[in-house]
Structures are given as C-alpha cells and as structure tokens.
Amino acid sequence: MDPAQFFAASRVIIVAGKGGVGKTTVTAALARAAARTGLRTLVVEVEGKSGLPSLFGQPALEYDEIVLAPGGGPHGAADVVARTLTPDDALVEYLEDHGMTRISRRLVSSGALDMVSTAAPGIRDILILGKVKQLELGSDHDLIVLDAPAAGHAISFLRSARGLIDAVRVGPINAQAREVLDMLTDPARAQVILVTLPEETPVNELVDTAYSLEDEVGVSLGPVVVNGIYPEIPGLDVDPTEAARAAGATLRSGEAEALAAAARFRADRTALQAQQVARLAERLPLPQIVLPYCFTTDLGPDEVEHLAHAALGGIEALGADADTRTDRGAGT
C-alpha cells in the first residue's frame, strides 16, 4: 500500500499499547514516516514526561508546539512538531473559546477541576480528547499522532466519551463528549494503531485491548505494530569453526563457543518471536507492520530514522487490501 495513502486515511492516529512495548518509539517512527510522505505531522503527548523528545534529541515538550524533526531533504519531507496536552489547559481553553472565561479561571484557581474530575471520571480524558478533536478540525496539521496512555488506561481513556455522555447529561462536557465520540467512531477521522512486542503476555494483552476497543469504543483499528523483531542474519546456523575454515580465518580460544552461543540465542529467540507473531495473526485478523529490534538501549534520531524507514517498508508491504481494514476489524 502506498504510504501516502495509508497516512492520509485518517486525520488522527492513536498509538496504544502496554507499558514497555515501545509505544513512544513507535509513535516517533510513525510520525517521522508520515512526515516523509509530505504530511505536516503533529505528535501529541498526554502522559507528561515521556521519552519522545529525547528520541529526537530535543528537550521536554511544552503546551506550545516545538519542532521535533524538521522537514526538507531530497523527498520533500514535512516537519514533525509536537506538544503536550494537559486537562487543565484544555479546559481553560475550551471555556474561554465558549465565552466562559470567568468560570474557567474560577474552576482552575479553586482546585475545583480536581473535584469535578473526581466526581465524573473521564472528564480529564475528554478534555484532552476534545482538544485533539479541535486540532483535528483545524488546518495547521495534516496528521495528528497521539501517544495514548498505557494499555488498560488506553481503554478507559478512549471509553471516556461514551461514559460521560451518560454521566453528564447537559453542558459543555456533554457536548464535548459527543463530538469526541463522533471523531473516534469515524474511520476517516481516527484510527487506533496497537503496539506489541513478539512475546506472550504483550500479545495476549493486545488481543484483549483490540476487542475491547472495538466493542466498547467503536473505534477503527489500523494495522498492528509488532515491535522489536530481531533482524534476520543469514549464515548463523553454520558452525563457527567450519565458517572460520571456509573464510580462511583463525579463531581465538573460546571464540567459537561465544559465536555459537550468541547464534543459538538469536535463533531461539527468533523462533519464539515468529511463534508469537503467528499466534497474534491467528487471534487477531489485522494486518501487521513489523519493526526491527535495535541493538542499543540508546534510541535517538538515527534509530527513529531507521524505524521510520522500516515502517514505510512495512506499510508498502501491506497490500492493497489493507485500505479496507475498517471492514475486517477484530470483531469478526
């Protein structure tokens, strides 16, 4: 599938997954991949401190936008910009935009927002999603990539709209919740991309999350990203001593064992990863985009670039049928 077409399918991509699966890294890679297709891309962070800016070698995000990765280059990439959203700021903005400036100041200065959001949980989430919706309706960005809260929270985060429509029957919160739900349930406006590792527990949780999101939120699910797949190296099944003989090289003492042990480890893990990828495909009929494991713990702009490239490759490999994904979601 053409990546430009893929990224143009919905204005908002919500990236969700369990803690530790590399959700933020995948958010960064997808944003950069989208920008490389020429889309002005905004990344929205909602959990406060995340590793997102450091992936691009940038300082912590603020409520105001900063450029994470400038565009340009031979292929005419667009900028990746980013900002963080907080419920307090979003509420103040919303009320001010709706002629309720005095109320907004009072609500925030008295600490009433805490109280109010306690009284009807989900209000904080809806304020953030409401702001995302406002950005989506605006024309400053072609694509918004939302780094959603971790796993279980992602479900309650996205479910907040439905819950609040029942809990708060009138007023601006209710209106906001309705509009957010409209956005979330329209495949041309929003889709969720779930991230997992090729390991048993994350795969199980991803499958559960996928069904919950479809059933309880009604949001459209895009392809699943399987992160951290060991890149294939041919030739690892050859005995090191024989490989040395063939290459006309000599091995130092102990080296044959080290080479063999490392090769065996990789082969074992690769086999387990393949098992989990197959199990995921069996349990969840969604296309998969596979991203490689980076053999470093210091992910930075180079790795993001590498992963963005891999994501583009994965999207191209999706096949033309992937654009009908909304009809073949998890609930089949």
């Binding site: 030739g235 050859v238 063939a246 290459a247 080479l259 490392a262 090769a263 990789r266």
Partner: peptide
C-alpha cells in the same frame, strides 16, 4: 562470509 555474519551477531 558466514563467519562475518556470526561476528556481526
């Protein structure tokens, strides 16, 4: 060479 791959790994 295969040995190169093994070292790479």
């Amino acid at each position: 060479t295969d040995l190169g791959a093994l070292y790479g790994n």
